[in-house]
Design a binder for these strands. Structure first.
Lengths: 186, 186
DNA sequence: TTTAAAATTGACTAATCAGTCAGCAAAAGT
DNA sequence: ACTTTTGCTGACTGATTAGTCAATTTTAAA
């Protein structure tokens, strides 16, 4: 494994556990098994590391969702694919998602251009636009729809974490929530 | 104004701007116009201050919602009162709400007993329970319903901040969102 | 093999921070 | 008026931190 990735990995783990400022760079280097100086060789500053980690995670999530949601002939099914892929990534990458949440509510968010943050919403935006044009989805502003959908996904994720359901039960809750969501936007 | 409140006020402002660890206690004392030592006289540690601030804000929000939502004879109207009061408090107390969001996604959350966090949801839980018993609300788990409602409120708040609508337009969006929410849970 | 370039190291530093404490000031009690 | 209690102050400290850099190792090139 590349040292850069080892550092990102260690940083992720420690940031989620102790917070951004609560985690010294020396601890990150130690956890990653590299020297103190190597960290600053790979990332100019600690802030750079934090931002790089955020961008990396967003990219990994986008890639997963893209690769794991098949395009189908039915609009509803395509939308469902996207919904499930997103949720499954979040569920399987709890720590990554906690970091993203922490980052997005922190002052570090201002270090990133708004376009960069929006980028993750691009596939869903495009799909919704098509849905509206096809008359399937209610003709509401796309960013409003994205808000409705993503807040529901985030909330559902928190709910699933709090209640440790069995896999089938979990799947049922996710599926039922999709139906509620679908009824809401169509 | 009490010195304790001045400290809480200064801390709130600075925490939201620079983050928890990014804000030195010395700056908080300075901003509050009190001596360094006074801060530690009022709050044993910095962590104590952070937790006290969170509890204080949650209390203020609960009090506002309670005082500004009239009980009506119609279940729907009572529910609507609660929904609007919550949203209006959040909109008028953006900084407080940003702090709450930052706190809830931070490792500091573990310093608080889960019951303390749930306490803010008590009124809505009770109301929903009644609504289910009266056959108005879908018979879903109450904490699931609370999740649906609060995630929508949080999302809507973010949406309203991003799009700086005029007051009437803002009210219209809030009202329309209520209708979507109502259809979803009944 | 020799040489040059690139990556890695960890001891080091200047700065910063949370929390202390001896003393001062203001109330409150007698 | 005198004493006691309480609240407040800010200079101080020991510990910690982000980031540096000269020296060393590893890799690549000739």
């Amino acid at each position: 494994m590349e040292k850069t990735n080892k550092i990102l990995d260690a940083a992720l783990k420690l940031f989620v556990e102790y917070g951004f400022h609560g985690t010294p760079t020396s601890k990150i280097a130690q956890e990653a098994g590299v020297a103190n100086g190597t960290l600053f060789n790979k990332f100019k500053t600690k802030d750079d590391l934090i931002v790089a980690l955020f961008v990396d995670i967003e990219l990994r999530m986008s890639k997963f969702v893209e690769e794991n949601s098949k395009e189908t002939t039915s609009f509803k099914d395509t939308f469902k694919e996207l919904y499930f892929a997103s949720l499954y990534w979040i569920i399987d990458n709890k720590i990554e998602f906690r970091f993203v949440q922490q980052f997005k509510t922190s002052p570090f968010l201002s270090l990133i251009a708004p376009e960069e943050i929006e980028k993750a919403h691009k596939p869903i935006c495009e799909l919704l636009q098509k849905g509206i044009e096809a008359g399937v989805i209610k003709p509401l502003p796309v960013d409003y729809l994205v808000m409705l959908i993503s807040s529901l996904i985030y909330g559902l994720n928190d709910y699933l974490i709090k209640n440790e359901f069995s896999k089938p039960k979990q799947h049922a809750v996710i599926s039922d929530t999709f139906d509620l969501l679908w009824d809401m936007i169509t």
